[in-house]
Structure formats: C-alpha cells, structure tokens
Simulated assay, not measured.
Amino acid sequence: MIEPFANNHQSMQIGELVIENQTDKIIIYGDIDLQLNMLGHEQAQQLHELTSKILQAFDKNPDYSKNVPESKGKSDLPDESIDNPFL
C-alpha cells in the first residue's frame, strides 16, 4: 500500500487500476471489475483502505485548499482578443 503524497516513486495496482504516488497528487488510471466473489471483495477492500489513507492525508494537511492549481485552460491564452479566421 502506498503512503499518499509521501514521495514521487511509489505505485500500486488493483486489478487493471494503476495508482501512482506524487508529493502533490495521486494519479489513478485504468479500470477495475469488482465481481461478487472473493477477489472482488479483496480488491474492494484495497480500494477502501487506499481512499481512507488519501482522505487521512488531506486531514493531516489542512493547508491543501491553499494549493489551488492554475487553470490549464487559461494559462497559455493571450490577454487580448483576436479576430476569428473562420468568419
């Protein structure tokens, strides 16, 4: 199990779901089929433990709301209007 936000080199996998640890974010991608069997129960338990640890990390760092990332949609746009070339 990873320690959320602790380092930039941990990762884990649950089914085909990949969880990568970073000091400023947790990256989750892939998919998982939770079937109603023992493996599904085990995977659901791992997801529950992981999300609980992530939430505990937020609770331990109340300053997380001050770390609002800059919008990617506006970061590279000029501050001036331009004519639409398709009109």
Rank of each mutant, 00 (worst) to 15 (best):
T23P: 02
T23K: 08
T23V: 08
K25Q: 12
K25D: 05
I27A: 07
I27D: 09
I28R: 02
I28L: 02
I28P: 00
Y29W: 03
G30L: 03
I32P: 01
L34Q: 00
N37E: 07
N37D: 15
M38H: 10
L39Q: 12
G40M: 01
G40C: 02
G40K: 01
H41L: 10
H41I: 05
Q43P: 02
A44H: 09
Q46S: 12
L47F: 08
H48G: 10
H48N: 14
H48L: 10
H48R: 14
T51Y: 15
S52C: 10
S52T: 15
K53P: 04
Q56W: 10
Q56F: 11
Q56D: 15
F58D: 01
D59S: 11
K60G: 09
K60A: 15
K60R: 13
K60S: 14
N61C: 03
N61D: 10
D63I: 15
Y64L: 04
Y64D: 01
S65W: 07
N67C: 09
N67P: 00
N67E: 09
P69M: 01
E70C: 04
K72E: 14
K72C: 07
G73R: 06
S75Y: 06
S75I: 14
S75V: 13
S75N: 06
S75W: 03
L77R: 11
L77D: 09
P78T: 06
P78I: 05
D79N: 15
E80T: 12
S81I: 08
I82K: 14
I82W: 14
D83S: 10
D83G: 08
N84V: 02
P85K: 02
